[in-house]
Simulated scan of single mutants.
Amino acid sequence: MTNSSSIEPNPAAIGRVPAPPFVRLPDPGRLFEARRERLEFLAQASELAPYLRFVAGIASAQSAIQEALPEPELPPADALDRARAFGMPPLDRNRIAHDDVLSETLTRLFDAVSPLTKPLEAQAALERVKAATPEQMGGMLNSVLMEAIPADSIAEHVYVAAGLQVHFARLAAKLGSAQLVRIGDGTCPCCGGAPTSSLVVGWMEAEGARYCSCSLCGTLWNVVRVKCVLCSSGKGIGYKEIEGGPGTVKAECCDNCRGYVKLLYQQKDAALDPVADDIASLGLDLLLQEGEYRRGSFNPFLLGI
């Protein structure tokens, strides 16, 4: 593993002052299909191939079930206005109802992933999820939304998280950028979620800018570079990567809070996906576990590390 200093030059900023858009809302119709494609590509040359293909199957299911799903309903207009006025996410995860749309989303997702090749333990976990009572399902939904997964039921919660990702991505896509305000560097302005990872993008209107990717709804929000997205400190920021790699995935480590969030250089490889490449770079997490930094991001497909 190699280290680099806290000074990370941004060539895109030379000679101009970029003004990247604050957010890019998810496109649910493309989000999960692009993730599936990336996971299957990464599986071709990875020791994690079986797991990457399994998650690719989940992403395929997340994409496929949307076609016939009823439209989810946003909170009332007055609630959206109130959230903006008080600097809160409009999709309040504490108030999201377990309604018919969410129930159907979960049911279809569970059915769609049933045929996937998976370990016996994963199949047993899926059967337990499908047989859960409304009270049990409500508890699992709450655990995912609070990002507090019980260690003895991680596999069950992965399936629930996958269904919630679909539901929240569809809700976020119905919002307007003008309804959103900055809440915190490490907090999604749509749903209050933590980032899975962050991206240095190559978009024409935001080349070289950094965006965090929400672990729940898939929204991207702009955060300035060389700044910890966990504690907002601009001091003691360093970058670690696996030696000999392509230099497209690094861990941005903070000496202030001792946390790290991965930084993916999408401007170097446009195919990088904030979830897929976070999983595929598990080796970097394992190396960092031996040191002083803790993982500060949330990825439901990497629970337990």
Rank of each mutant, 00 (worst) to 15 (best):
C253W: 00
A271I: 11
H98G: 08
P26A: 11
Q62C: 12
L102M: 12
C257F: 05
T133Y: 03
S114F: 12
L216V: 07
S213H: 12
M140C: 05
S143P: 04
E47C: 11
Y239P: 00
S215F: 01
Y159E: 02
L272N: 01
P274I: 08
G57W: 02
L286G: 05
E147Y: 03
L263H: 03
P75M: 10
I305F: 13
L109S: 06
C217H: 03
V201E: 00
D269T: 12
N299M: 08
C231M: 03
V275F: 11
A151L: 15
P72W: 08
L69Y: 10
I237M: 04
A206V: 03
L109E: 04
E292T: 13
R30K: 15
E127Q: 14
P28C: 14
R82I: 05
K240G: 07
P119N: 02
R38V: 11
L116E: 04
L286V: 12
D27T: 13
V229I: 11
D78S: 14
P134G: 05
R294Q: 15
T105A: 07
I279M: 07
T107N: 15
F41H: 10
L216Y: 01
K227Y: 00
G87W: 08
C231H: 03
Q136G: 10
R84A: 12
E135G: 06
P11C: 11
S143Y: 02
L288D: 05
G236Y: 08
L282W: 10
L25V: 09
P75L: 09
L116W: 04
A270S: 12
L74V: 05
V249E: 00
R182A: 15
I279V: 11
I7Q: 15
G87A: 14
L91W: 01
A12H: 06
Q267G: 10
S197C: 09
L80A: 04
R170K: 12
H167A: 08
A13I: 13
G57F: 01
L216I: 10
T248M: 14
Q289R: 14
L272E: 00
A83E: 03
P72E: 12
R38N: 08
S213M: 06
R36D: 04
P90S: 11
C188Q: 07
G186Q: 03
